[in-house]
């Protein structure tokens, strides 16, 4: 079994690197610094850390002002409170003036687990993706998170980073290269492509191995950069496999599946199956049990691949 680390943990560590490298990096939180893992930055760079209390609208609005004055603020809270509570602050105070704010949201998706549906953001990618000027990144493991955070700091403009609470397998080494706007082909196959991000990437790789044993050749594409989307790679892979499954820990409405469908619908119509939450809220439970219950598993991906193969052969 591979080593596991939560993407939020990797975020906390990456912030320490940024803190040392760039004096303009500042961090804001809304009373969740132990959970979002900004607490280590707060300890090391107390003068550059601002706890805003449980007040997310002001958290994002203050981050906008810091950016307007030349800082690179990372504003952290749970995804549901950043995108949900403070949507319009993100839209009007950050994205509209294209201010250099990084919205680093943790606890996305149903793998929040026990806290239940009220705390599980399942629509955040859809919402952030629809906002002009916003970059939307969904890293799959610790290493990719590290690179995503560093890339976000380099990029000038608003970025939404979607991270999780759950420990997830380490997939990539330091030789891995994340780039904003680039998808990564992790495995090349000829029959079907699985395009995934976040926690679903490791499952996609496992599903591909199992399918290989069944004689099905599967490409696995990691689409951490949901916006901008690497249309070129998505179209190229879809041309090769002629069948696509998308996989995300998000509502099937508006997220990665929708983004891929939009591109393929216009440029390379391809049979598709979208794996994700089927327009439903989550609930309390252990994260792995919830993934099982809501169909976000290797087994579901295998099933989806057979389903899309059947469509392709029709």
């Amino acid at each position: 079994m591979a080593n596991k680390v939560a993407t939020r943990e990797a975020y906390g560590k990456a912030l320490l690197v940024l803190g040392a490298e760039n004096p303009n990096v500042v961090v804001l939180d809304a009373d969740l610094s132990k959970s979002t893992k900004t607490a280590d930055f707060a300890k090391k760079y107390p003068e550059r850390f601002f706890n805003m209390g449980i007040a997310e609208a002001n958290l994002l609005g203050t981050a906008a002002g810091l950016a307007a004055a030349g800082k690179i603020p990372f504003a952290s809270t749970f995804a549901i409170f950043a995108v949900g509570r403070a949507f319009e602050q993100i839209r009007n105070s950050i994205a509209y003036p294209k201010l250099n704010v990084k919205i680093a949201a943790t606890h996305s998706g149903i793998t929040v687990g026990e806290d239940g549906g009220s705390h599980q953001a399942i629509e955040d990618v859809a919402i952030m993706r629809a906002v002009p000027n916003m970059v939307v990144l969904v890293p799959a493991d610790g290493e990719e998170t590290r690179q995503v955070v560093l890339a976000a700091a380099q990029y000038k403009g608003p970025v939404y980073i979607r991270m999780g609470r759950l420990d997830v397998p380490l997939l990539f080494g330091e030789e891995y290269r994340f780039e904003i706007g680039k998808a990564n082909v992790l495995k090349k196959g000829t029959d079907v492509a699985i395009m995934a991000n976040g926690v679903m990437v490791s499952m996609a790789l496992e599903a591909a191995s199992e399918l290989a044993d069944q004689g099905v050749s599967v490409s696995v594409v990691n689409v951490a950069s949901v916006k901008p989307l690497d249309e070129e790679t998505i179209v190229r892979i879809a041309k090769t496999t002629k069948a696509v499954v998308t996989a995300e820990e998000h509502n099937i409405i508006g997220g990665l599946g929708s983004a891929v469908a939009e591109v393929l619908g216009e440029k390379q119509p391809t049979p598709m199956v979208r794996v994700g939450l089927k327009d439903t809220f989550g609930e309390s439970g252990r994260p792995l049990e919830l993934l099982e219950k809501y169909g976000l598993t290797k087994a579901e991906l295998v099933k989806a691949v057979h389903e899309v193969l059947a469509k392709k052969q029709r």
Binding site: A57, N58, G61, T62, A64, G65, A68, Q89, S93
Partner: peptide, 14 residues
């Protein structure tokens, strides 16, 4: 409702 937050951010940066 959003302006004072932004002003505060600029002031913190200063």
């Amino acid at each position: 409702g959003q302006g004072l937050s932004a002003a505060n951010g600029m002031a913190l940066a200063g």
